[in-house]
Amino acid sequence: MNATRSLSMIQAINEALDVALERDRMVTIFGQDVGYFGGVFRATEGLQKRHGSHRVFDAPISEAGIVAVAVGMGAFGKRPVVEIQFADYIYPAADQIISEAARMRYRTCGEWWSPITVRSPYGGGIYGGQTHSQSPEGIFTHVAGLKTVIPSNPHDAKGLLLAAIEDDDPVLFFEPKRLYHGPFDGHHERPVQSWSDHPDAEVPQGHYTTPLGKARIVREGDEVTVLAYGTMVHVALAAVQETGIDAEIIDLRTLIPLDLDTIRQSASKTGRCVVVHEATRTCGFGAELAALVQKHCFFDLEAPVERVTGWDTPYPHAFEWEYFPGPARVGQALRQIIEV
């Protein structure tokens, strides 16, 4: 195993991109402000200088254009890794992602495919208001042909991003921007934490991958299964600590492909399941998870599957902490489901 050191999530992502550029000359990185400046979140800092402006460059403010150009480059044989500055701004590219990248392999019977990775900061908890806080993963998990990946810590961020880049299917890689510089459990009233002493911030040097389609049991437990990803993994951990309920917390890591086996084994064991995500509730990815648990664990379930999610409203500014599903709301759901 390579030597490890403690990195923030943004450093881990930067390192993954650096490793990918180093290993495969077909990897090309572009997006708004990612070149000279190094990205508004510093994810691509230093990469243009190290790898040249043919490998890492700035792009016009055109999300549709960025993804379309990536699809065209993919058809040529390149392996583009593009950035959409905020997931809230991915919608202009939706046609290229949904109608083109996702279907290229299918509609050409494998003559062409789109080995592209679309990185995008997502999620709330940062006073980002309506257009810097959204969690649009459910829109894309509904699309056949796309993979959706969401890391929750620096170690996974690097390994999953390298796996996503090396994957020949189009991958949406949503990065919880609230976690870029430290873990966040929803306790906004407490001082900001850094990744420095967190065990999952120990990141190996060089190349490694964290396989897509494999969830991780973050905490073993017997009373209830919590399905979470991104920032909500840390919120769930806090809620478990605060309620003292012996919950098993599963970090899904990839939504498509989904690790059904891990989910099924856990929910069958505990007989109870709470799904947690920041995204709005109706038709969110939690609905798919609830339906799968209901179908596969029906005879083991002792309570209805519960969902703790963002409300079905646009993401507000002033009511950040009334909207964000924090540890109090998750804890309440855990208590309620145990009492059923």
Binding site: A68, V71, G72, M73, A75, D95, E100, R103
Partner: peptide, 17 residues
């Protein structure tokens, strides 16, 4: 593709590559 004009910027991307 059935979706109109999507191929136009894709061609640009291919040419850039």
């Amino acid at each position: 593709s059935g979706n109109l004009a999507t191929q136009f910027p894709q061609a640009v991307g291919w040419a850039m590559a």
